[in-house]
Amino acid sequence: MGLGTALKNFYMSVEDRYYGFMEFMETKVHIPLERFFVAPIESRGIPSFPIFMLLLLAIFGGAYWFMFAAQPSGNLRIRVMGGEEASLEGATVEIYADDVLLATNVTGVDGYVEFAGLAPEKTLTIKITKDGYEVVERRLRVADDNSLTVTMTSAEAPEGGVLEIPEEEEEWTAAPDEETLNAKLVVLARDAKDNSVLISGTATVYDADTGVELTTIAIAGGTGVAEGLEADTGVYVNIQADGYVPYDGSSSPITLVSGSNTLPPAFLTKAGAGTSSGTSITVKDAASGLPLGGATMQIFVPGGSSMITTALTDSSGSVSIELASGSYYARATKAGYFTGFSSPFIAGESVYVQLTIATPDTSTGLT
């Protein structure tokens, strides 16, 4: 049996199967292929099997073209240039789509690199790197064929110099309560005569530059502690204690450091300790100007609440009191008169206090 006979028999066998398939579709599946496809064609004397095969081939061919051949394949050719229009060899070119690396290649001696099969419907990111050059990035949509030229900028140091990379400044903000206000000041108060500690008093801390009061603390057992002060600040301390001449520390400021600071002991002199000449105080009647004998005179330190000393005026209305150097004021009382006060004075000065008689007219409203 020759080849022609074999092919004819094969064709007839396939054709028989074709007609059997058409009959099956007509009778079993109830798709009238035989009635609407086979019969109309063969009634004109044309075999339907070859036409069916051609249609089948066209369907499969179209599907293949749609799924594969119809998809365009994007090609991309990139040239990387350095300075002075020179091609740059050895630059790494990476292609990304949605942060996913699709392809990578390195430029040749001519500075070119090529990519094929890139999906044209996506926006691609092209990243080019090379040591000594700044990184370059480009974004584009690839068509069937694309070409791109990129020039890289040198990141090397200028001739004769050093490439300076600016350091990122560190932001630092001091929290006042924790970082800045971290100095403590210990104040010591002593009696100038016997070096004994002062039982009680107050110490006021001042800014040495501005004179502004920073804080006031209590002194107990000869010691007071001021906390929450700012380091690197110059300060001085004034101290007051009942029965003592006020201590002025403005001539002995110190600069605080972080942590604990201790002032040298402040020595306070008792008022009336005889360190100055006698202070003469005279009490007079405010209306007549006549001296008032038998008036009670009390001496205080400004800002203090405890009396330093007391005395009675003689028949001339005067009294002489020994006071330590410092500032004072006097309080005078006498039966039938309103209490009178002197202006502040310095030990050794002559002081006058006027008392106003308490008459029905001048005492109206007093209880």
Rank of each mutant, 00 (worst) to 15 (best):
Y11T: 11
M12H: 11
D16S: 02
D16L: 02
Y19D: 02
M25T: 10
L33G: 01
E34C: 03
F36M: 12
P40M: 12
I46R: 14
S48Y: 09
S48F: 12
M53Y: 12
L55C: 09
A58V: 07
A63L: 15
Y64Q: 05
F66M: 10
A69G: 08
A69L: 14
L76W: 00
M81Y: 01
M81Q: 04
E84F: 09
E84A: 14
E85W: 08
A86Q: 14
A86Y: 08
A86C: 10
L88I: 13
V100L: 02
L101Q: 04
T104Y: 00
N105T: 11
F115W: 02
A116E: 03
G117L: 06
P120Y: 02
K122Q: 10
L124V: 02
I126L: 00
V135C: 12
R138T: 03
V142A: 02
D145S: 11
S147E: 05
S154R: 13
A155E: 14
A157V: 01
V162E: 13
I165W: 00
P166S: 06
P176N: 02
P176L: 05
D177E: 09
D177N: 07
N182R: 02
V187P: 05
V187Y: 03
L188S: 05
D194L: 07
L198D: 13
I199D: 15
I199P: 14
G201T: 05
A208V: 06
T210Y: 12
E213K: 13
A218D: 10
I219Q: 05
G221N: 09
G222P: 12
V225A: 05
L229R: 08
E230D: 04
D232M: 09
T233L: 13
N238P: 12
I239F: 09
A241E: 15
Y244C: 12
Y244E: 09
Y247Q: 01
Y247W: 03
I254H: 00
S260L: 13
P264I: 12
P264E: 13
F267I: 05
K270Q: 09
A271K: 12
A271H: 13
A271D: 13
A273W: 14
T279S: 15
S280W: 08
A287C: 01
L292G: 00
G293W: 14
Q298Y: 09
I299K: 07
F300S: 00
P302K: 07
S305L: 12
T309P: 15
T309N: 14
G317R: 00
S318C: 08
S320F: 05
A330T: 11
R331H: 07
A332T: 14
T333Y: 01
K334E: 03
K334S: 08
F341A: 11
V353P: 09
T356V: 09
I357Y: 11
G365F: 14
